[in-house]
Structures are given as C-alpha cells and as structure tokens.
C-alpha cells in the first residue's frame, strides 16, 4: 500500500469538547492508524497522536477540527477519526 495524504473537517459535538479522556481516545486511534496525523484549529496545530498537544489547543464544543493524515490508507484514517469525533468519543 502506497503512502497517501488525506484530509477532512469535523465539528466537535460533545459538551465537554476534547477533555483529556476524549483526547486520549483520539490520540490512541491516531497512533493505531499508523499515519502521521495533524490536527489544526483556529488556536493552532497539534500532533494528533499527542494528548498533550491536543489538550493544549483547549478544544471546546463547536470547534472545527481540520484533520490531515499522511501514510498508509490515509483516507481511511481520516474517516475513522472523524467518525470518532462525531460519535462523541464513544468507543
């Protein structure tokens, strides 16, 4: 499988936003995809596999995340991450 780049946007729906626990779920999934995942908001950029960087963006409900992934099956990785955010971080 060749390395690809993909991107997508999603709005955080759950009331708490990206608190540490949701951020952990996000980072775990980002890590599991095997892709380099980057998250961008109006507040700045974060490595999608870093709970700390995600948390430091202070993402609350209603914030739009622009997710990019680089690596094997990047499109699939972005789709799964968006799904996780849309589900309200239920795993």
């Amino acid at each position: 499988m060749s390395a690809t780049t993909a991107g997508g946007e999603v709005v955080v729906r759950n009331a708490q936003g990206l608190h540490l626990r949701p951020a952990t779920e996000f980072a775990k999934l980002a890590m599991a995809t095997g892709c380099r995942v980057q998250v961008r908001t109006d507040a700045g950029d974060a490595n999608g596999a870093s709970v700390l960087e995600l948390a430091m963006l202070g993402i609350t409900q209603g914030v739009t995340l622009r997710i990019t992934a680089e690596g094997p099956s990047a499109g699939d990785a972005v789709r799964r991450l968006i799904q996780l955010v849309e589900s309200g971080f239920v795993v």
């Binding site: 540490l20 952990t24 490595n47 596999a49 870093s50 709970v51 700390l52 960087e53």
Partner: peptide, 12 residues
Amino acid sequence: STHQMLLEDPAL
C-alpha cells in the same frame, strides 16, 4: 492514568 498518559506523551 491521566498522569501516566502525560508522561508517555511523545510531545512532552
């Protein structure tokens, strides 16, 4: 587990 996670964070 929160603290453990912070300790294991690659960015830190």
